[in-house]
């Protein structure tokens, strides 16, 4: 990372130590740390990760097999902190284990979109020409013409439901956005002087895209990735709610909501908890993504 001298007017008499060197990464990090909303987002995500990793330790009951028929549809309190469901399963334990599926739902679709979308975007943006304009971008347009949830449903119709297929479907739904963003950033960067300089000293195309262009678009991709994770969590919950995502016994927050639908009148807490958990985690990713955007681009949102 390049280094910027900030206090240019530092007196020459103070020989050293007074010159404050601030690296670009340092200044981004500082802006990021000072951003309260980003810190709150990070905290929420940290709690999610901790719950996912330590589910075995935190959850007092097994999320699937601990069925307490003496305590069915119980209100929160006593042995069952957040109450129980229709099979006497402990809601708190299911929520904690649900953090695992939620983490996967955040990570897998975005990984698919990054692994497939970024290389395509880099390639098509860098090479350009008829292939870019007439084939790849029109395919992206066509893919984008399907409302994302309908695309996911169509894929569920073809591939069948289930958590893995839902992840793939959501990931493919992200592809157009990731290709577009990578392509636009590549187009913006590829004719800058430093890229021309690299070309003039004989760097190969592959080297230019991987080592000169790609590092310069990571910031934008980082923001996009974080915000896409928020979308992916809602999408997974939605698909599981419809019954095309996680199976009913899997402790997914979406399938917990699906199950709760039958008890809207009798046990409202079953609806409240998973929804609060989804909202909180999605809020975390939204806050973090927006905070990252502000830290990486000080002019944004001001």
């Amino acid at each position: 990372m390049g280094e910027l001298f900030v206090d240019g007017e530092t007196a020459a008499s103070d020989t050293q130590a007074q010159v404050r060197r601030v690296s670009l990464a340092g200044s981004i990090l500082r802006r990021f740390r000072k951003n309260h909303q980003a810190m709150l987002g990070l905290l929420i995500i940290a709690v999610l990760i901790a719950a996912a990793l330590l589910a075995d330790v935190i959850a007092p009951f097994d999320p699937v097999f601990a069925q307490d028929y003496e305590a069915i549809l119980k209100d929160p309190g006593g042995k069952h902190l957040l109450g129980t469901d229709d099979l006497g399963r402990d809601t708190f334990s299911r929520l904690v284990y649900g953090a695992r599926l939620t983490m996967l739902a955040a990570v897998i679709p975005v990984t698919i979109a990054l692994l497939v979308g970024v290389p395509i975007g880099l390639f098509t943006g860098y090479v350009g020409g008829a292939l870019d304009h007439w084939v790849i971008m029109r395919l992206v347009d066509a893919l984008q013409a399907f409302p994302s949830l309908i695309l996911a449903l169509a894929m569920a119709a073809v591939l069948g439901g289930g958590f893995t297929n839902a992840m793939i479907a959501i990931g493919i739904g992200f592809l157009p956005a990731f290709i577009r963003i990578t392509r636009a950033q590549t187009l913006a960067v590829k004719n800058l002087e430093y890229v021309q300089a690299a070309r003039s000293i004989g760097a190969t195309e592959r080297r230019i895209t991987l080592f000169h262009i790609f590092p310069n678009i990571t910031a934008t991709l980082l923001v996009q990735t974080t915000l896409a994770m928020a979308t992916a969590i809602i999408a997974e919950a939605g698909l599981s709610y419809i019954g095309l995502g996680a199976s009913p016994e899997q402790p997914s927050w979406g399938s917990m909501l699906r199950n709760a639908q039958s008890y809207l009148n009798t046990q409202p807490w079953l609806v409240v908890w998973p929804g609060l958990a989804i909202s909180a985690v999605v809020l975390g990713f939204n806050l973090l993504g927006d905070g990252l955007r502000q830290a990486l681009d000080p002019k944004a949102n001001k």
Binding site: Q37, A230, I234, A237, G238, Y241, L257, A260, Q261, L264, N265, P268, V271, V272, P274, G275, I278, S279, A280, V282, L283, N286, L287, D290
Partner: peptide
């Protein structure tokens, strides 16, 4: 608006049913 963007609309719908209907 951050909260609004983060709440799944289908959950909000269920909460509405619970509150205003049930």
């Amino acid at each position: 608006s951050f909260i609004g963007m983060s709440i799944p609309h289908f959950w909000l719908g269920m909460m509405f049913i619970m509150f205003f209907a049930a």
